[in-house]
Every structure is written in C-alpha cells, then in structure tokens.
C-alpha cells in the first residue's frame, strides 16, 4: 500500500517487463520503489514460484485426500474401521492417530524444505529489489 498509481517507468503492460532502459540491474522503478511487475516475471521469482508449487501442491493434495479418506471410511465403512488391531484398539482409532503423525511429518518436511530450498531463493529475489540504502 505504497502509492496509488504506477510510476512512469513501470511497463504499461504488466505481464511483460522490459529491462532495456534500466540504469542498473536492480528491479526498481523511477521512484526507488520495487518494480513488482518486473520482479514477477523475473527468472528468480518464477523459479521461487515453481519451488513453492512443487512442494505445496502435492502435499496439500496428499493430506486432504488422506483426511477425506479417513472421514469417508468412518462414515461409510464402519465395519472396516472397527476391525481390532492391537487388543481393543481398532483400525479407525489407529488411522485417526496416524493423521496426527502425518500432519507432524508434513509440517516438519515443509519447515525443512522452506529453510533449504525456499528461503535462499527468497533472498535472491529480494536482492533484485534492494537499493543501496535498504541494504542493512
């Protein structure tokens, strides 16, 4: 929420960024503000998006499917879910508890992936828009 109007040097067509008239390689517009349109189409940002998607999409599909499967089995396959596994502990209770376990596994996997694969790439993209004053 910085300013209402795009500044003059921002390309008129947003999906297409031009780099020719830049005085420097940084993606900053005439006012020293980040040029979001140019950053959005930059190679580094697209790479970041791809990396984010590569984890989030399959992980989200996986955990939602697994959860919905559990719920559907509970609703429509009560007999199967009541099969005893360990003493009185049945399939349903075990699957429910496994939901906790998978949630923790995915959470830790995402935290690890973010640290190793996303955060460094975020830094790269941020460097595109950093002016000298902002380098602290």
């Amino acid at each position: 929420m910085t300013k209402a109007l795009p500044s003059v040097s921002r390309p008129a067509s947003p999906g297409f960024a031009t780099f020719d008239d830049r005085h420097h390689s940084l993606l900053i517009d005439g006012d020293g503000e980040p040029d979001f349109g140019a950053i959005q189409t930059s190679e580094d940002f697209l790479a970041l998006k791809r990396r984010v998607r590569r984890f989030i999409l399959p992980a989200t599909v996986l955990f939602l499917t697994w959860y919905v499967t559990f719920v559907l089995l509970s609703a429509y396959a009560a007999d199967f879910m009541s099969t005893p596994l360990f003493g009185t502990v049945n399939v349903g209770l075990t699957m429910g508890f496994l939901q906790f376990v998978t949630t923790i596994i995915i959470t830790m996997a995402y935290a690890r992936y973010s640290k190793k694969r996303l955060d460094p790439q975020v830094e790269k993209v941020r460097a595109l828009a950093e002016t000298d004053e902002e380098l602290v």
């Binding site: 979001f36 950053i39 959005q40 940002f45 970041l48 993209v125 941020r126 828009a129």
Partner: peptide, 12 residues
C-alpha cells in the same frame, strides 16, 4: 503483481 511478489518474498 505487487501482492504476489510481496506475498512470497515480503518485498515492499
């Protein structure tokens, strides 16, 4: 553009 870039990177 601003929202997407900012959302992923915090720029701005």
């Amino acid at each position: 553009s601003e929202m997407e870039v900012r959302g992923l990177t915090g720029i701005g």
